[in-house]
Simulated scan of single mutants.
Amino acid sequence: LPDGDITGVTISDTEKRMAFYHNGSRSPNNLFAYDFASKDVAKLTDSLNPEIDPADLVESRVIRYKSFDGLEIPAILYQPHGATAENKVPAIVMVHGGPGGQARMPYNALVQYLANHGYAVLDVNNRGSSGYGKTFFTADDRKHGREPLWDCIEAKKYFGSLGYVDVDKVGIMGGSYGGYMVLAALAFKPEEFAAGVDIFGVSNWVRTLQSIPPYWESFRKSLYTEIGDPETDLEMLREVSPLFHADKITKPLIVLQGANDPRVIKPESDEIVEAIKKKNGVVEYVVFDNEGHGFSKKENEIRAYKAILDFLDPHLKGSKSG
Rank of each mutant, 00 (worst) to 15 (best):
G98H: 00
C152W: 08
I76K: 12
G179Y: 01
F188K: 05
R207M: 04
L234W: 04
M94Q: 14
L122Q: 05
L57M: 10
S203W: 02
G175K: 01
D53K: 12
A91S: 07
S319Y: 12
K320I: 14
G24M: 03
G178H: 01
F295M: 13
E72G: 07
D168E: 02
P54A: 09
S12H: 15
W216S: 12
I272T: 08
S60L: 11
P213D: 09
N125G: 06
G100F: 00
R142F: 10
K278N: 14
P54Y: 11
C152V: 05
I73P: 12
V286K: 02
S47W: 09
K43L: 08
G100Q: 01
N23R: 03
R142Y: 11
F32M: 00
K248P: 06
G322N: 02
P28T: 01
I212V: 14
R207L: 08
P267K: 10
K66L: 14
P242I: 02
P314Q: 10
L71A: 06
V286I: 13
S211M: 05
K248W: 05
G174K: 02
N116Y: 08
H144W: 02
Q257D: 11
W150C: 06
L309G: 04
Y21N: 14
A83H: 06
G171Y: 01
S176H: 06
H81C: 10
G179T: 09
F200Q: 11
L162F: 00
F188G: 04
G82S: 12
S38N: 14
F32A: 02
L48G: 07
P50V: 00
H245V: 06
G100E: 00
Y107K: 02
Y177V: 06
R220K: 15
G196N: 07
E154Q: 13
M105Y: 04
A91P: 12
R142C: 05
M181N: 08
Y177L: 02
E86F: 05
I52H: 08
F219E: 15
T135K: 09
D261S: 10
V273E: 03
T225F: 11
H117D: 13
